[in-house]
Design a protein around this nucleic acid. Structure first.
Lengths: 352, 352
DNA sequence: CCACCGATTGACAGCGCTGACATTTACTCT
DNA sequence: AGAGTAAATGTCAGCGCTGTCAATCGGTGG
């Protein structure tokens, strides 16, 4: 076979390392795979040879022989601005384990999505897959993965699959804290902008909001609860209808920062002084949160940490092979409030 | 070898397809690789067998035997908000060619970056690499790739390597058009916020700006040209110092939308009516451009198209193997103006 | 000193495919 | 019809590693 061209070129092989270390290639293999039952002294010698030759084992060969792939998939559809950070976190964790991350955009809308997934996992022999919303709730994807027996980790799914782990954030508690800030400043009439109904976060955030409102004996005026889709443009409409209501609310809780930014725009257009006449809070600590004035008080998502944990779940799964431990792990992360300038006491309270 | 566990399981092999089609495995291989010199009728029969068995060739095996990897790398550092879209575009093009994209975050700051790159390319045997700024100007990365003989495509590099292709956008022309808009509305005293000095775009955009200013015999007041770093926070400072200048400029050209957003904030804080008293334009059509008021007039980046072209360059390169065609391809894409509400005639012109 | 046992190490086949080369087939031309 | 040629297909080894299982090593207890 020609070795003249192609990415491989005359790379060092395991045999060369074996010769240099005076052992068999199998022993080198054992060292590479960090197996026990290699004498410490032998291991050292092999490691030394590896370093001297600057040897890098071929993933292709390792995969073919060992029936592995060293690949983890990250499937997404219509990523938000958090995706790059997410994948960076996932890659970091994967690297520590000698794995690599393949990112694969998928079309939720596509009818062939199951076939696409199937082709992907069988060609690449993925060792695991991480699904970010809204894919984490896609039945086709989920089933295809399950049938193929590929370990899958679902990020913040609406409905966590019974036999597959998920990683969640405690949106409800965070929403409570944020609402408490508003109430603590003296707001009584607070509007709420809902997110996409197919996101778990939407429900949780609203629940956290109502928890606190009720706890303080405050009414949640249905007229002030509007459905958006996490999009700025939806936020515009919601905010308009909210701010037309009488009496006008003194604060708006938007389910994410994009919609909160929209509320800021609309408030401003209506000539309201922000935050004096209208307090606004968002969620996610998206880039836009600090790119508008006033900067948004919001809730930070530990995106990287979530990604690392998701990757970790896949990595930890390998040794066991025979399904997930029971109960299936469902880590839930706490969220951190980020208080900035978009909350102020309402006019009434200021007058008092 | 045990077949009990692992991602592979009892997948269909090429032999099974060969049997079913009544040909040798080599012929099946030929069909898979789309080689000519397979009789049409034979090809049909093989294709049929593949479909019936739902056969997916193992990339590992193909790679090992053929000394390929079917993998293209996308290297980045500190990605902007465009990364997800970029990678989606790249993945799309790669899929058409049966390749897969590996995303790899790299630390420009790290001293080991060369070693990291080297490990990556030799473990994975990447068939090509796409470098996005600022990595497209990183000498370590570039050299490591060159030594390893990996085809690399550089996105918008400051200094295009002589023997490696790059993909660029015509920022200068776009900046001219945008400046012309400002001048056309009657602005004479226009400030400019520069981007990161290590980005090619920074220079090009400024050049486009001065081109038009000079063409109209307008002075470029050095006091109104401030250096930022494409970051919102820098934009805040730049904008403050710019708007303190007397006489105050009537318009600001920011090198990107994040900084333009900062200018909007500062202008607003200083009590200026936007856009009546201050016009602001940005660049990139970032998400924030439509999430503030007034929405920014800016220049759209064809991010996906750039990514597709970059991937295409890698894909087209393979057949030739022996270096790039001469001259080395350097496609340059045109940019599209996006006019929104952030430009208005200056107060003087309005009075007139 | 020897049988014996667990810890180490090695020999070897083979993972699923493709490159090089051999062979067969299908035609063309004389 | 037979030679000659190009197209079509097949044979076989081997890509670089790991699983299986056998062999060897080192120390133990009798």
């Amino acid at each position: 076979m020609s070795k003249a061209a192609g990415p491989g070129r005359q790379s060092t092989t395991i045999e060369m390392v074996a010769d240099r270390a005076g052992v068999s290639s199998k022993t080198v293999s054992r060292v590479i795979n960090n197996e026990r039952s290699v004498r410490a002294e032998t291991r050292t010698r092999v490691l030394e040879a590896i370093k001297q030759l600057d040897y890098q084992p071929s993933l292709n060969a390792r995969g073919l022989a060992g029936d592995r792939s060293f690949l983890v998939g990250l499937f997404y559809d219509k990523p938000g601005d958090y995706l790059s950070e997410f994948q960076t976190g996932a890659v970091q964790r994967c690297r520590e384990a000698g794995l690599h991350l393949m990112v694969e955009p998928l079309e939720t809308a596509s009818a062939d999505i199951a076939r696409d997934v199937s082709a992907l996992i069988r060609q690449l022999r993925l060792e695991g897959v991480i699904l970010v919303p809204p894919l984490s709730d896609n039945a086709d994807v989920r089933d295809t993965l399950a049938v193929a027996g590929i370990p899958a980790v679902h990020i913040a799914p609406m409905h966590a699959p019974a036999d597959s782990p998920s990683v969640d954030t405690d949106d409800r508690t965070a929403a409570r804290k944020l609402t408490a800030q508003l109430v603590g400043h003296g707001h009584r009439r607070i509007a709420f902008m809902l997110g996409r109904p197919d996101h778990r976060a939407t429900e949780q955030r609203y629940l956290g909001f109502t928890d606190v409102m009720h706890a303080h004996g405050l009414a949640v005026d249905r007229q002030l609860v509007r459905a958006g889709n996490f999009e700025f443009s939806d936020g515009l409409e919601c905010a308009r209808s909210i701010l037309e209501a009488l009496p006008r609310p003194t604060a708006i809780f938007a389910s994410n920062d994009d919609m909160a930014a929209a509320a800021v725009c609309v408030g401003r257009q209506m000539g309201l002084a922000l935050p004096e006449q209208l307090s606004i809070v968002g969620f996610d600590d998206a880039p836009v949160a600090t790119m508008i004035w006033p900067q948004l008080s919001t809730v930070r998502q530990p995106v990287r940490a979530i990604a690392r944990i998701a990757a970790d779940l896949i990595i930890e799964h390998r040794p066991h092979q025979h399904g997930w431990p029971r109960p299936v792990p469902r880590p839930r992360l706490d969220l951190e409030l980020v208080l900035r300038g978009s909350i102020a006491p309402p006019p009434a309270a200021r007058a008092a």
